[in-house]
C-alpha cells in the first residue's frame, strides 16, 4: 500500500485533486456572482467538466478503473444540461 501511494503517478494524482478542487472553488465563485443567467450556465458547464477531471484523477489516486463509468455519464449529462439551458434562454429571448 505504502509503496503504491509513493509512485509518481499517485503523487501527481493527489496534486491534481488539490488543483482541481481549487479550480472548482473559483468557478463556484463565478456561479454565485453571475451577473447574468448565461454566466451561470457557463460556470455550471465548467463545473461539470471539472467534476469529470476530478473523477479521473481520483481513479488514478485510488487505482479504481470502474470510476471511469460515472465520469462518462457525467460528461453526457453535463452536455445535455448545457444544450437545454441554451435552448431555454434562446426561446425566452424570442418570446419577449
Amino acid at each position: 500500500m505504502s509503496h503504491a501511494s509513493d509512485s509518481p503517478a499517485h503523487v501527481a494524482a493527489n496534486l491534481a485533486l488539490v488543483m482541481i478542487g481549487l479550480a472548482l472553488f473559483l468557478s463556484f465563485i463565478r456561479l454565485v456572482r453571475g451577473p447574468s443567467l448565461p454566466d451561470r450556465v457557463v460556470a455550471l458547464d465548467l463545473i461539470g467538466v471539472q467534476a469529470v477531471g476530478m473523477i479521473a484523477a481520483y481513479a488514478v489516486a485510488t487505482d479504481q478503473a470502474v470510476l471511469l463509468d460515472p465520469a462518462t455519464v457525467l460528461g453526457l449529462v453535463g452536455f445535455m444540461g448545457t444544450v437545454a439551458f441554451a435552448k431555454y434562454l434562446e426561446r425566452r429571448a424570442r418570446d419577449e
Binding site: 503517478a9 501527481a12 496534486l15 491534481a16 485533486l17 479550480a23 472548482l24 468557478s27 463565478r30
Partner: peptide
C-alpha cells in the same frame, strides 16, 4: 503519466481562473 495528470489539472485551474 504523472506529467500528464499535473498538466491537465493545471489547464483546468487556468480555465477556472479565466472564468473568474
Amino acid at each position: 503519466n504523472a506529467v500528464l495528470l499535473v498538466v491537465g489539472a493545471l489547464f483546468m485551474l487556468l480555465g477556472a481562473l479565466g472564468v473568474l
